[in-house]
Simulated assay, not measured.
Amino acid sequence: MQASDPTAKLGKGFALIAWLLVLAVIYLLFDDAIANKLNPNQQVQSVVNAAGEAKVTLSRNASGHYVGTLQLNGVDVVFLLDTGATVVAVSPEVAKRTGMPQGQPYQVNTANGITTAYQSRINSLKLGDIVLRDLPASIVPNLTSSKGGTEILLGMSALKHLEFAQQANQLQLKQRN
């Protein structure tokens, strides 16, 4: 029986560590690329013209949807722009994180069928330089997201205050003062 060589064990240990580091770097690169495909508007670009109009340009994601990051009551949340949603819809987790009150229950008809939602209000919603205040919203218990409940549906209670126009794979939102 041969005694094991300590330098061989050490070499195998360093090789294992090197492979783990390579795999970690590959994971981080692909994770970032996937996140950018799902949410190409993580850093929303906006401008304010001389007349005081704020304009935001959103890019479509790989699935053809407009997804981005905004601030809801000062907290970053991921949104999906949904012109079919009457009001801004949030999950209970987002409502709790952003301090939204849970009001009276009411029935809503969603893509998943009829469910109970709760009336609420948003103090402030900030998308780039666009700022909206005191918006009706709903807390929808079965609203789920791939991000653990961080996604909201940006519905017409917010969008009706904006002008929007789509060209190719971009959507421009404009707030007039």
Results as ranks from 00 to 15, higher is better:
residue 73 N to V: 06
residue 75 V to A: 04
residue 76 D to V: 00
residue 76 D to K: 15
residue 77 V to G: 06
residue 77 V to T: 12
residue 77 V to N: 02
residue 78 V to H: 05
residue 78 V to N: 08
residue 79 F to R: 13
residue 79 F to C: 07
residue 80 L to G: 01
residue 82 D to R: 13
residue 82 D to H: 09
residue 82 D to W: 09
residue 83 T to I: 04
residue 84 G to I: 03
residue 84 G to C: 05
residue 85 A to L: 05
residue 86 T to L: 08
residue 86 T to H: 05
residue 87 V to P: 01
residue 88 V to W: 01
residue 88 V to D: 02
residue 88 V to S: 03
residue 89 A to P: 00
residue 89 A to M: 05
residue 89 A to W: 03
residue 90 V to Q: 01
residue 90 V to E: 02
residue 90 V to N: 01
residue 90 V to T: 11
residue 92 P to A: 14
residue 93 E to T: 08
residue 94 V to E: 03
residue 94 V to D: 07
residue 95 A to R: 04
residue 96 K to H: 09
residue 96 K to F: 01
residue 97 R to A: 13
residue 98 T to E: 07
residue 98 T to C: 15
residue 98 T to R: 07
residue 99 G to Y: 03
residue 99 G to D: 02
residue 100 M to T: 09
residue 100 M to E: 11
residue 101 P to R: 14
residue 102 Q to K: 15
residue 102 Q to P: 00
residue 102 Q to H: 04
residue 103 G to M: 04
residue 104 Q to F: 08
residue 105 P to I: 03
residue 105 P to A: 13
residue 106 Y to Q: 14
residue 106 Y to H: 15
residue 107 Q to V: 13
residue 107 Q to R: 15
residue 107 Q to P: 00
residue 109 N to F: 08
residue 109 N to M: 10
residue 109 N to S: 14
residue 110 T to W: 05
residue 110 T to Y: 07
residue 110 T to Q: 03
residue 111 A to M: 10
residue 112 N to S: 15
residue 113 G to C: 10
residue 114 I to F: 05
residue 114 I to Q: 15
residue 114 I to E: 13
residue 115 T to M: 12
residue 115 T to S: 14
residue 116 T to F: 13
residue 116 T to P: 03
residue 116 T to L: 10
residue 117 A to G: 14
residue 119 Q to I: 02
residue 122 I to W: 05
residue 123 N to P: 00
